[in-house]
């Protein structure tokens, strides 16, 4: 069936979309950057980080879950929305223990890159400094819960792609945290493996391959030369992606 050309407008720019696409899908296809952390084109949108909150016909909506409807007037890159995004990023920074200088993901980290994009100069809010553990039990991977931002990409990847259901979120409110579904709670007691989708989707430094770190020199890391607005997600997959499940 030939789809008729339908359009939405983002910050005054008219862009086409196909039925079933969310605002995020349409924006990415048109190379318009809407900041996001929990969104990943290969997975069902989650809408939890709220970075992609945009104004749709005067209402606040998350672009990753909001279906495109012809004629929508959308505001994205505005001072107010970006300030909101900065506050949300700061909240994520104070909620966990994000020590960029010592983190192997630095320079390749989506949270850090978004923080640069939204002009975050300090975490501003009082740090929670939660006590969180590190799970180094697996021979090839280490899970550092300090750096988890609860985007649930690993949860979704392990459940929907790997069919292993290794990760889950437990606890409510500020006590919500990532857990590993095994009797011991340790990654070594799961069938997590190097080739798993869940091993590659973490946008921050919470799930990392052991030993081989800092291999990319400063200056050549993903976000060293260009902003995340141009570079895109740390998984480098979303260029031209349309809807989850297909590219």
């Amino acid at each position: 069936m030939q789809l008729e050309e339908q359009t939405i407008t983002i910050d005054g720019q008219k862009i086409p979309f196909q039925s079933g696409q969310t605002i995020m899908d349409a924006a990415l296809a048109a190379k318009i950057y809407i900041p996001h952390l929990c969104y990943h084109p290969e997975f069902k949108p989650h809408g939890s980080c709220r970075l992609c909150t945009v104004m749709v016909n005067g209402r606040y909506e998350s672009a990753c879950t909001m279906p495109s409807v012809a004629g929508q007037e959308i505001l994205n890159n505005t001072k107010e929305l970006n300030e909101n995004r900065r506050a949300l990023t700061q909240m994520l920074f104070v909620e966990g223990n994000h020590i960029c200088p010592g983190c192997p993901k630095t320079g390749n980290c989506q949270l850090q890159a978004v923080a640069y994009y939204v002009g975050m100069l300090s975490s501003h809010y009082q740090h929670f400094y939660p006590y969180r553990d590190l799970d180094p039990s697996h021979p090839d991977y280490v899970v550092d819960f300090n750096r988890c931002i609860l985007c649930e990409l690993c949860v979704r990847a392990s459940r929907d792609v790997d069919k292993k259901n290794i990760f889950a979120i437990s606890g409510r409110g500020i006590k919500a945290h990532l857990i590993i579904n095994s009797p011991s709670g340790k990654l070594e007691d799961t069938d997590f493996a190097v080739g798993d989708k869940a091993a590659f989707v973490c946008p921050v430094g919470a799930i990392l391959r052991k030993r081989t770190r800092y291999t990319t020199p400063i200056g050549e890391r993903l976000y060293d030369k260009q902003s995340i607005r141009i570079v895109g997600d740390s998984q480098q997959l979303h260029a031209g992606a349309t809807k989850y499940g297909r590219k």
């Binding site: 939890s48 709220r50 949300l88 909240m91 994520l92 909620e95 809010y125 009082q126 409110g173 919500a176």
Partner: peptide, 12 residues
């Protein structure tokens, strides 16, 4: 605890 603003913001 699902979304960032409510999860962190209420505690802040």
């Amino acid at each position: 605890g699902f979304c960032t603003p409510c999860r962190v913001g209420t505690s802040l």
